[in-house]
């Protein structure tokens, strides 16, 4: 009898100790936490910025190719060549081209490429266009939308610091590769506003 009481007492003490000493969580939740802990958004952005801009340039549509594609079945063309984030009317493209001549004011480089007006902002770069057209990021990799949006600020900052020259040349030609957004329901804007990933000036 005494032995049974001892065993019961020992069990009463040991079982709660064991239960509270061990932390359990579902495997899916644990893996999710681990993935989030390892994911560093700015490092990821830096990696793509350093390694993947050339690939963007290689895969970019020419401005003429874009405008001709959108002049046909715009929605089909957008589905085939553009990117969409979630549910919305805008499609994002990466385009490239050369402005044989350009004008520059305080805020934009302005010119014509393949018969289409192009403007490239050089002072203020807002929004998610550079992030979303690149296809480098998946929203599901981010803790929340705020973290996802911070990537845009970071990328826009790198563009302003590293792509836009401190002083824009007064003459010559300008090669550009950048992001543009189009609403396939209104596919022919007066001007393509291009957020540049790359700019190259030639005298």
């Amino acid at each position: 009898m005494k032995k049974a009481v001892k065993i019961l007492l020992a069990a009463a003490l040991c079982i709660p100790a064991v239960v509270f000493a061990v932390y359990t969580e579902p495997l899916d939740a644990h893996r999710e936490k681990e993935r989030m802990a390892q994911f560093k958004p700015e490092e990821r952005a830096d990696y793509h910025w350093e390694h993947d801009r050339q690939a963007l340039r290689d895969a970019a549509l020419g401005v003429g190719e874009l405008s001709r594609g959108l002049a046909g079945d715009a929605q089909n063309f957008a589905d085939a060549h553009g990117r969409v984030l979630g549910i919305g009317s805008k499609t994002f493209f990466v385009v490239k081209g050369t402005l044989p001549r350009f004008d520059a004011d305080e805020e934009y480089i302005l010119g014509t490429c393949d018969g289409h007006a192009v403007r490239i902002p050089v002072k203020y770069i807002f929004g998610n266009l550079a992030r979303d057209a690149s296809g480098w990021f998946d929203i599901d990799d981010f803790q929340n939308t705020m973290a996802f949006n911070e990537i845009s600020s970071y990328l826009n900052g790198r563009i302003l610091a590293e792509v836009i020259p401190a002083s824009i040349p007064e003459a010559g030609s300008c090669f550009f590769c950048g992001a543009v957004e189009i609403d396939p329901a209104a596919p022919d804007p007066e001007c393509y506003t291009v957020i540049p990933y790359l700019l190259d000036f030639h005298e």
């Binding site: 549910i87 998610n128 929340n144 949006n149």
Partner: peptide, 25 residues
């Protein structure tokens, strides 16, 4: 939004940030 991605199957959210960039402009 909730701040734990795995705590819901899907989160369908307004793109508030982009919307307010357009509003700011």
């Amino acid at each position: 939004e909730i701040n734990e991605p795995g705590a819901a199957v899907t989160q369908i959210l307004s793109d508030n940030y982009s919307g307010c960039i357009a509003l700011g402009q």
